[in-house]
Amino acid sequence: MTLTAIVESIIFAADSPLSIDRMADLLQEYQRVDIKAALSELEELHQGRAGGFHLVEVGGGWQFRTRPELQEYVLRQVRSKAVKFSPSALETLAIIAYRQPVTRIEVEHLRGVDCGGVLKTLLEKKLVRILGKKDIPGRPLIYGTSREFLEVFGLKDLKSLPTLKEIQALGEEPHFEQQEELPLGKTDGVVEGE
């Protein structure tokens, strides 16, 4: 049994992404460097075979995921598993993701409305977690995104979030430069109508 096969099997059996630290704990008889080499070999193998799934680093760990281009077919089988978000939940989640650590009052100030119910829902879905309490009067809770947030949105880490410029570019209409009109009289020495 090769280390590559062992690593592949434990990642396949895991219900969430496995970090290299966790794999090193599970496979104490192997060196960390060998585990990393096995991961690289697996990533290359699955990328090269262009099958229905591939190995990706997401949420601080490694996980097998179906290829995005096959989404249409996978959704036929897994209809009820799709997570739906209300606009207010997405807005609150975006504020927390980009501004974390952040308090409820700070989120409400930015949104301009109460967000207690939305925060509760995001906590229940484990997309947001409580990081602690802020050292100010009243000691309000501080919120941040969770590992599940990274998994749901397919992010390796928070640095993978799109920048403001990338987000704005999505909403813009394509910009085409205006070209000068070509004169229609003479073309290659021939005058039209002759």
Rank of each mutant, 00 (worst) to 15 (best):
T163Q: 05
D157C: 07
T103G: 00
I6G: 05
F12E: 15
L170H: 09
G171S: 12
E180G: 13
T187F: 13
T145K: 00
G59M: 04
G116F: 00
P140A: 08
P183A: 09
A14C: 04
S19W: 04
A82C: 10
I136Q: 13
P17G: 03
S16Q: 11
E173R: 13
A37V: 08
L122E: 02
G52E: 11
G185H: 10
M23P: 00
E29L: 11
Y73L: 14
A97K: 07
L122D: 05
D188L: 15
F153G: 05
E44P: 01
P68N: 06
E172R: 15
E173L: 14
P140Q: 06
P140V: 05
L45I: 09
E173Q: 12
E72R: 11
L39R: 02
L141C: 09
Q77E: 12
W62Q: 01
L122Y: 01
P183V: 06
V56M: 08
L75H: 09
R79H: 07
Q77F: 01
V56N: 10
E29N: 09
A14E: 04
K156F: 01
Q178Y: 10
Q168F: 07
S88R: 14
L123A: 07
P87L: 13
E72Y: 08
R67F: 04
Y30A: 11
Q71L: 09
E106Q: 15
V58E: 02
L26Y: 06
S16A: 15
P174C: 10
L127C: 04
G48S: 15
G59D: 02
I136D: 11
S146N: 03
E44V: 09
R65M: 12
V128Y: 04
E72Q: 12
E108T: 06
D114Y: 04
E166K: 08
C115R: 03
P137F: 08
S146P: 04
L55N: 04
F64G: 00
V113Y: 08
S9H: 09
A94E: 09
I35R: 06
Q28W: 00
V190K: 12
A82K: 10
A89W: 03
P174R: 14
G154R: 08
E106F: 01
H175T: 14
E8N: 12
Q63G: 00
A169Y: 02
Q178T: 13
P87T: 08
G144E: 06
L55T: 02
H54I: 10
M1R: 02
M23Y: 02
R147S: 14
D188N: 15
H46P: 00
I35V: 08
K159A: 15
E194Y: 07
A14I: 02
K120I: 05
G48E: 15
Q63W: 07
P174S: 14
L3I: 11
T103Y: 03
L184V: 12
V128A: 06
E8V: 02
P68E: 07
L42F: 06
G138K: 15
D157F: 01
H109V: 10
G189P: 02
E173S: 13
V102T: 12
Q179L: 12
D34F: 07
E192F: 13
I96Q: 03
T145R: 05
M1P: 12
F64Y: 15
H54P: 00
P140Y: 07
T121D: 12
I6E: 14
D25Y: 03
V128S: 00
G60F: 05
S9I: 04
W62H: 06
K165L: 13
L158W: 04
G61R: 03
I95S: 09
R139I: 05
S86Y: 07
S80L: 11
I95D: 08
G117Y: 00
A5N: 11
V33M: 06
L182R: 13
